[in-house]
Amino acid sequence: MNVKRTIDIASSLMTGIAGLFTLTLLMAVGSIAMLGTGAYESINTMPLFKWINKVSLKDSWWLVLSLVTLSIITANTILCTVRSLIAKTPARSFLLKISPQIMHAGFLLILLAHLFSSYDSFHYVTRIYEGQGIQMSNSTIARFTEIRLLTDKTGFPTGMTAKVTVTEGEDRVLVKKISPNHPAFYNNMGIYLKNVLPYRFPAAMVEISSDSGAIWAFAGGILFFTGNILLVVLKWRHELSSSSLN
């Protein structure tokens, strides 16, 4: 098989369709496989690649196959995008041609984000009492005070807060009130209040995490959204004008 034929197949729409079909099927099978084993209990607590190395292939086979399929889809998306961009198109159809490629670029960035997250994301969840601290790095400590649970008249929890103070050696570098959905960030690390515990002394579940893929996922999401909106508007106009011609 010559190089041109290989590129033709790798960049073809049919390869993309076959890849999407296989991936959909593998993930559906995987979602059922996940239920039957305890191996998946730790999947959210460590980077994906570390988890795959830890568990046996008997548990992760579908995920490994999904990653292989995803690699094929990635190569197909890149080649298809490049081919589409270098092909000659009338100037008035340029936006219509470019919008799916913007979506593809967004999709690729999201995949890249998952790659980063799967490689080195970090999550540490622990219980702390009022005044206790967590060592974030050699010289950085996050200390938690003013842990409060807010309730309504019936006792239903309506909010929870804690004050976090981050110190770097002797210097106080961050003081912030945190609550669910309102974490504090310091040095690419998030400090999250997960829950306030109903103990005799104020206590909370907190999380220190870092996810290097998040910013890439966000950028990919924005790109995908832009391309998608553009495509919808242009397709709608295009179909309306072609149906009025008919």
Binding site: M34, N44, P180
Partner: peptide, 18 residues
């Protein structure tokens, strides 16, 4: 913002992706 990660391996998120 809520859990410190944009993706969790849960059946719902899985099926959303599917």
């Amino acid at each position: 913002y809520a859990w410190g990660t944009y993706w969790l391996w849960t059946p719902k998120e899985f099926w959303t992706s599917i």
